[in-house]
Structures are given as C-alpha cells and as structure tokens.
Simulated scan of single mutants.
Amino acid sequence: MKELVEFLARSLVDHPDQVRVNEVAGEQTVILEVRVAPEDVGKIIGKQGRIARAIRTVARAVGARAGKRVEVEILDGGGPATAGR
C-alpha cells in the first residue's frame, strides 16, 4: 500500500525526491501520511480534490483486499490538507 501511494505521488509531482510516505499502522486502520514539497501540494490534491480523492480510492481498495481500513493524509509541512475528502 505504502509503495503504491508513494509511486503515484512521485509520478505526479515536479520534485519526486521530496515525496515521503509515512505509514502509521493500527489494529484495523492504516494511515498513510504523504508529504510533498509545498509547491507540489496542488498537484497532489488536483482540481476540486479529484486527484486526492482518486489516490484515496485506490488506497482504500487495496486496503479492503487486505482487510484494513486505509486513510490517506496529504501534508505539506504545516499540517494536513483536507481537500478532496
């Protein structure tokens, strides 16, 4: 899951070397924190949050196959960007 989200994020941004995905695993929930360069946040979120929503949908589908609930948070250093939820 983490590798998939990292691959998708790196494919979308101008600074792929600055993409970091941190996985916080609980018993039934996995939180994936995606950090990108501040100028790339818009590329990850997309117009009206469409790209962020698509990334979350793919991650949830993969998590469902593994029996886990997956949340994807997009961070820019200042905190979560909530568009597309």
Rank of each mutant, 00 (worst) to 15 (best):
A37I: 02
E23F: 08
R69S: 11
E27R: 15
N22Q: 14
E3M: 12
I31L: 11
F7M: 15
I51Y: 02
L75V: 08
A54S: 14
A59I: 10
A9N: 08
L4E: 04
T29E: 13
A52N: 03
V5R: 12
E23I: 09
K47N: 00
P38K: 09
A83T: 00
R65W: 05
T57P: 02
V36S: 06
G67T: 07
V72A: 09
I51D: 00
E71A: 11
K43R: 15
A64P: 00
G63K: 12
R53C: 01
A25L: 09
V34T: 06
I31G: 02
A64I: 07
V21P: 07
R65S: 00
I74Y: 04
A61T: 13
E3W: 03
L32E: 07
K68M: 14
M1N: 08
T29F: 04
E39I: 10
R85S: 05
R20F: 11
R60E: 09
G49W: 01
V5Q: 08
I74T: 06
L75D: 08
G84C: 04
T82W: 13
D76Y: 06
I74K: 05
P80D: 13
V24M: 13
I74F: 10
H15Y: 13
M1Q: 04
V62N: 02
A54C: 06
R20E: 14
I55G: 03
V62I: 15
V34L: 11
S11T: 13
R56F: 06
E71G: 03
V58Y: 05
R85C: 04
A9C: 14
V13D: 11
G78E: 13
G63S: 11
I31Y: 12
A59M: 08
I45L: 05
V24A: 13
A81N: 09
R85K: 13
P38T: 05
L75C: 12
G63I: 10
Q48I: 01
N22D: 13
R10A: 12
G42D: 01
V70S: 06
M1E: 03
P38V: 07
M1Y: 09
V70L: 09
V72S: 09
V24Q: 09
A59N: 07
F7K: 10
N22K: 15
